[in-house]
Write a protein that binds this DNA or RNA. Structure first.
Lengths: 225, 225
DNA sequence: CATCTTTGTCACAATTAGGTAACGAAATGC
DNA sequence: GCATTTCGTTACCTAATTGTGACAAAGATG
């Protein structure tokens, strides 16, 4: 995702909006740089201002089109310019006239991204530890083909352990990951939740299949059986 | 969805209406580009003006018909031309005479999209979760062979859930998808609409077939029964 | 074995989260 | 312009979740 515009405040606004949407946004203010960056970064979508200093937006778009088939959204100050652009068949995929609402732009960008990969976002985040599986997308935990119901805290705790299997995690680390950085309270709380968790996944602390106690430190989730 | 007309304001108006209806709309003002775009974008429906500069709308339609079986809606300025067109069997599927109300056009387009071959264009617009089916083109929801009437908000909410089945969605994610980025208000609103939705699809929160509550996070739509 | 430290378990009260109904405002349809 | 639908908010109720403290059990130390 690349934004090309010489008005810095506008760029910041757009960046802010798109980043909040979880997109990575690069930006530049002049045409030649833009072409260069498209070549190097291979963005999926380029938002391009028509009135750039140095190199015209139309020219930038044409150059980009010689080597890339990324989506290009043109920004233009005057509505009647859109007609001209369409007539010229510059190669842009969409047009937005200034002033525009950031929301509108975000919607268009998202529409582009949707088109670019119809079936990609469905990737799953699953972790296995022997017979135990944690699906962080569905927020489900399965043990031997049957689902285990966990509370939010228990789920986060187990996730924290299973994302780095075999690694011993201190109580403080676990608290930071599950309760957050600035949580204050007794670290003993971790023990209680580990206890509840163990009961639900039928894990015996004296003979653990999954959650092993690391004395003096904390806990670890051991891969394999 | 492609609109071909050389009157820019009209095109923008139509785009605005159709986009508000959740459709993706491309546009061009001349015939050769239109043929090109139909080939590349493979739209389900093409709205085509009869009086185009360069290439006649009839000719454009004929060319399109040589390689595509998309629906074509013809726009014509004079009502008596319609008869001539029908006589010539140009290959258009519907005719609208100018001046027309944008609403009328939207209705016709939607009718086309409803009719569109199930195995060609519509596949990505239909989502199943067991006995529940959501058709985002027709904006219809079916449950066990009978249609369920939903309000716009309910429909969007269900769509947001069913497009990523099995994935837990936070209230904020759902709000962003249904109400938009910058919506401010209580996230609890989601709960209320989920409640209404559940009643309409006969889903019991205590024993859900479709919409499952993910405590501490939000909701997810679970595929399978 | 005696003692100290660390870990596991239990019960309980406070809090939070989710479901539902009701209601006025806004939008929509006729 | 009126009737109806839809929407966002609020309030209330129930049930689940959570942190704490007390105490038992297990492990380490010498």
């Amino acid at each position: 995702m690349l934004v090309v515009d010489d008005e810095a405040p506008l760029v910041r606004l757009v960046q802010e909006y798109l980043r909040r949407d979880g997109l990575w946004v690069e930006a530049t203010g002049n045409g030649p740089d833009a072409v260069q960056m498209v070549a190097e970064l291979e963005p999926t979508v380029v938002v391009l201002d028509l009135g750039l200093p140095g190199m015209d937006g139309v020219e930038v778009c044409r150059r980009i089109r010689t080597f890339s088939d990324c989506y290009v959204i043109m920004l233009t100050a005057r509505a009647d310019e859109v007609d001209r652009l369409i007539g010229l068949s510059v190669g842009a995929d969409d047009y937005v006239t200034k002033p525009f609402s950031p929301r509108e732009l975000v919607l268009r960008v998202r529409a582009m991204l949707r088109r670019s990969r119809p079936e990609s976002a469905a990737e799953r985040h699953r972790h296995w530890a022997g017979a135990l599986m944690v699906d962080t997308n569905a927020r489900e935990v399965w043990l031997d083909d049957s689902q285990v119901e966990l509370t939010p805290t228990e789920f986060e705790l187990l996730s924290a352990l299973i994302t780095e299997p075999g690694t011993a995690k201190s109580r403080r680390e676990l608290i930071t990951q599950v309760w957050g950085e600035e949580w204050i309270g007794d670290e003993h709380l971790v023990d209680v939740h580990i206890g509840n968790l163990r009961r639900k996944i039928h894990d015996d602390p004296a003979w653990p299949r999954f959650i092993h106690t690391v004395r003096g430190v904390g806990y670890k989730l051991r891969t394999g059986e």
